[in-house]
């Protein structure tokens, strides 16, 4: 079955000041049942893109449609089917139980059972007040809430910021185990190593434009990711960057070999050698 188009962004131009555009003639189409990684350097418009997709910001030109409805209209049925997890959380000083009681009624598919189960999995006390939590705990609690809303579109802005190492792994498990064919998750991050095993699609943006929009499967079909020791050689690598004790190399996949994507090297390669990477993916 062909995945359904969930989000469509057509020729969007947006800037906080009239003279400076953050995004320019930006088009994007996202399908359901995928975890998208939104990668980009600081200040390239990742958060802005998420806010535009959620309807919190309005494009100066172009349109954004979620399940065929214009997000700028901010219809309750549209907003009830998407959830944005902002990078900075402002939460009231209430317990998680109270928080759920206050906010959950707005989300028609919210599951209390799932929420409290996720909290238990992450060892978060639902009777403690939110202000007594550390930043990481608050973020984890909020992520649980976001998942328990069971919305079709989850927009996560730097979700792993502030999480410790075990929590990052818990986060990956949480997302993976709660992914469905009807759901789309967009995770904006600049910490690519936190999410490399989770993503199945990459969106890389830089300075107003979309540099790359491709699935991990397609990327690994076309490219090989290897780590060579010092002195080892490879024929015609596209990118070769030094690492501890050797080199990280991206080359064309001519042999049909399966390798695991090295997101950090790939991201840098797209920024620095875009033409070569794009050509290799097209061939």
């Amino acid at each position: 079955m062909r995945p359904m188009t969930m989000l469509e962004m057509n020729h969007v131009t947006f800037g906080y000041k009239r003279s400076v555009n953050v995004l320019e003639d930006f088009s994007l189409s996202l399908e359901s049942g995928a975890v998208y990684g939104l990668l980009g350097k600081n200040g390239t418009g990742k958060s802005t893109l998420l806010y535009l997709l959620s309807g919190l910001l309005r494009a100066q030109q172009g349109s954004v449609f979620f399940k065929g409805k214009d997000v700028r209209r901010r219809l309750p049925e549209t907003l009830g089917d998407l959830f944005l997890l902002p990078e900075e959380l402002v939460l009231p000083n209430v317990t998680l139980k109270q928080y759920a009681k206050m906010y959950a009624p707005f989300y028609p598919y919210f599951s209390y059972e799932q929420f409290f189960r996720l909290l238990a999995e992450l060892d978060i006390d639902d009777a403690a007040k939110l202000h007594s939590f550390s930043m990481g705990q608050r973020k984890k609690a909020y992520i649980c809430f976001a998942i328990a809303t069971n919305v079709s579109l989850l927009l996560l802005d730097e979700p792993t910021n502030g999480l410790d190492i075990p929590s990052k792994s818990q986060f990956r498990k949480l997302i993976a185990s709660n992914m469905t064919d009807e759901r789309t998750i967009i995770i904006s991050t600049h910490q690519v190593r936190d999410l490399d095993s989770l993503l199945d699609h990459l969106l890389i943006i830089d300075g107003k434009h979309l540099l790359l929009n491709d699935s991990i499967t397609h990327i690994t079909e076309r490219l090989c990711f290897d780590e060579l020791r010092s002195g080892e050689q490879m024929d015609e690598p596209i990118v070769s960057t030094p690492s501890l004790g050797g080199y990280r190399v991206i080359s064309r996949n001519t042999s049909g070999r399966e390798t695991v994507i090295d997101l950090e090297t790939f991201f840098n390669a797209v920024l620095d050698n875009r033409e070569q990477i794009i050509n290799a993916l097209k061939d």
């Binding site: 309807g55 919190l56 049925e77 902002p86 402002v90």
Partner: peptide, 17 residues
């Protein structure tokens, strides 16, 4: 701060509500 926060502003309610 609550009322200009993204999670508050994005609650599924209409402008009139």
């Amino acid at each position: 701060k609550f009322q200009t926060n993204a999670s508050y502003l994005n609650l599924p309610v209409s402008k009139l509500e």
